[in-house]
Design a protein around this nucleic acid. Sequence first.
DNA 1: CACTATCTTGAATGAGCATTCAAAAACTTT
DNA 2: AAAGTTTTTGAATGCTCATTCAAGATAGTG
Lengths: 193, 193
Amino acid sequence: MRNAEFDREKVLRSAMTAFMEKGYAKTSMQDLKAATGLHPGSIYCAFDNKRGLLLAALEQYRLDRSVEFEAFFADGRPVLSQLKSYLDDLVQQCLSCDSSQACLLTKALNEVAEQDAEVQQIIADNLARWQAALEQVLVRAATQGDLTSGRDSAHLARYLAMGIYGLRTFAHTHPGADTLQALADQLYHDICA
Amino acid sequence: MRNAEFDREKVLRSAMTAFMEKGYAKTSMQDLKAATGLHPGSIYCAFDNKRGLLLAALEQYRLDRSVEFEAFFADGRPVLSQLKSYLDDLVQQCLSCDSSQACLLTKALNEVAEQDAEVQQIIADNLARWQAALEQVLVRAATQGDLTSGRDSAHLARYLAMGIYGLRTFAHTHPGADTLQALADQLYHDICA
DNA sequence: CACTATCTTGAATGAGCATTCAAAAACTTT
DNA sequence: AAAGTTTTTGAATGCTCATTCAAGATAGTG
C-alpha cells in the first residue's frame, strides 16, 4: 500500500500549460516530464498515455474555468457590470501575450479535434456548457430589465461566444490594447443594445 | 538544361490541403509526398524543407484568397449585397464540414505562429492585408450611402474580421445550418446598423 | 545524335518520438 | 521494525520522422 505522491491538479495544470504553449503534437513526453515533474512511467500509470493526459487536462481545464466563471458572476453586482468585467478581463488575458493564457479548448479544437472524434465531442460539450452558462447570465440580465427583452437569449449567448472566439484569434495577431478593447466594447454593446 | 516538371501551383494547393487536414506538425513528408506527388528530394530541392513548403503554401493561399475576394466584390452590385453574399458563402464553407475548407492562416496562426516568429509575422501581415481589403469595402459602402456614416471603417473592418474568425471557430463545434446563418446575419446587421 | 546540365528517384541516415518494463524505493500495515 | 504492496525510476525498445545523397533519367543544346 502506497499512495501516489504527485498532486494531480498541479500535474494537470502543468500539462495544460505545456499543451497550450507548444500544441499537442509538438509537446513531447520529455516536455511533459519537464513540465509535470513526472517520469514517463508515472504518466503512463496515471493517465494511460499522452492522449489520456490531454483528456484529463481538458477536464481539469473545464473545472478551473467553471470556478473562474462563477467567481465573475457570483457577486451581487448588476449582471451587465459583471459581463463587462468578464470581457475586460478577457482583453487583459489576450494582451498578456502569454501563450499559456490561451484557451485550451479552442486550441485543441483547432489542432486535434478534426483528427479525433472523441476529443472533438468532449470539447464541443465543454464549449456548449460554457455557452449555456453565458445564456443563463443573459437570461438573468433580461429578467433584471437590463437587457432589451424579446431577444433570443440562446442566440445572443452564441453570438457572445462567437465574439469571444474571434477576439482570441484576433489577439494572436498582436493588435494594440486600445484596438482590442474597442472590439470587446463593441461586442458588449451589440449584445446589450 | 531541363525544366522542373511539376506544376508549382498544384503542388502548393495539395500541400495546403494536407496541412489544413492534419495540421502542420502531424503532416509528415510521406503525407506530403502522397498529397503532392513529389518525392522528398524534389520537395527539398524546390522548397528547402517542410517549413519552406509551408511558407510557399501560405503565399499561394494568400494569392488564391485574394483572387476569390476580388471576384466577390468586383461585380457591379451594391457593396452591401456583395458583403452579404461573401458572408453567406462563408457560412456554406463552414457547413461543408470539409477540413480542407478551413482557413490556413488562422489554422497556422493557432498551431505554429507561437513557436515561429517569422511565420507569425507573415500570417499577421496577410491577415492585415485582408482586413485592409475589408476596410476598403466598408469605405465604399459608406460613400455609397449604404452605411451609417460617421463610424470608423477601420474599426468596423476589424470587428468584421473578428466575427469571421469567431464564426469559423464556432463552426468547428458543428452547429446547425440555421444557427450559423443566424450568427452571420447578426454580424452583418451589427456592421451595417 | 551525343553531350551536358538539371531534375527525379528512393533508399539510407541519424535523431527524436511514444511507450514499455524490470528493478529500486517508499509508504502503510502488521 | 519487518513484510508486503504499490509507486517511482530511467534506461531500453522499436518506430517514425525530416533530411540527405548518389545514382539514374530526361530535356535542351550543339
